[in-house]
């Protein structure tokens, strides 16, 4: 292992990691928003919108992110929709993540017993009040583990961004391997940086999941 090489190229990886994190976070935030809206459309059986959401979820979940990105970045400009690579990355991640987040929220909503809604209604609450005070708080806490798993999944998926020539961690590693043949060092840095990004989220995820599984409300 050549430590001088590692120190020399550390800043390059830092820049790349920041790009990965930046696009990842914006994409994930958008995924959550998209997922929430889609889950609401499904839960309330909004006509038309519900059918659109179902089609979207099937397409998004049954095609690879890499192909989605190729389509957004290379194909859409041919019909006049050209966007920067970074914007395409965010858009692709949100397109993919939206459906995963929607499923997480939806299964959370469905896991709340119908009697919870009924007893709220029988106390004289309006549907909107029952949703806000009784259904949503429970649904959100039920979906937290799936939600964290999705965040990790989406952060991992950002590794394909180099395919649309974004200078992320993969791009940097491949570049250094190609230029200097420092394979071991380049790969070592790659793994370390992904661990720095992903380990905290993963640890937080298993902590939250354990708390929810073994404890729940009131401990």
């Amino acid at each position: 292992m050549n430590w001088d090489f590692i120190l020399k190229y550390l800043p390059l990886y830092e820049t790349a990691a920041l790009l990965t994190v930046k696009i990842g976070l914006i994409g994930i935030a958008l995924s959550i928003a998209v997922g929430f809206l889609c889950a609401a459309a499904l839960y309330f059986k909004v006509p038309v919108l519900r059918q659109i959401v179902i089609v979207y979820i099937e397409i998004s979940r049954n095609t690879p992110l890499l192909i989605q990105l190729f389509f957004i970045y290379y194909a859409l400009p041919k019909v006049g929709v050209a966007m920067s690579a970074q914007f395409c990355g965010v858009l692709g991640l949100a397109f993919l993540g939206g459906s995963y987040m929607a499923e997480a929220f939806r299964s959370g909503l469905e896991a709340v017993e119908p009697i919870q809604n009924e007893s709220a209604l029988s106390l004289g609450m309006e549907r909107s009040q029952a949703l806000r005070y009784v259904i949503l708080p429970q649904a959100v806490s039920i979906s937290v583990p799936a939600f964290v798993a999705n965040i990790i999944f989406l952060l991992k998926e950002t590794s394909v961004f180099s395919a649309i020539s974004l200078m992320d961690l993969m791009f940097t590693a491949k570049d250094l391997i190609g230029q200097y043949y420092k394979t071991t060092e380049s790969l070592f840095l790659l793994v370390v940086f992904y661990l720095i990004i992903l380990l905290p989220v993963s640890i937080l995820g298993s902590y939250v999941e354990r708390r929810l599984r073994y404890a729940g409300f009131g401990s």
């Binding site: 991992k156 998926e157 950002t158 590794s159 491949k174 790969l187 790659l190 793994v191 992904y194």
Partner: peptide, 22 residues
């Protein structure tokens, strides 16, 4: 844990590039 936390692309890089080298 290692396999699941690493992006599959990173694993591909590790096997593809370092097998030749190592």
């Amino acid at each position: 844990e290692f396999i699941r936390i690493m992006p599959q692309l990173v694993l591909l890089f590790i096997v593809f590039f370092s097998s030749t080298r190592t």
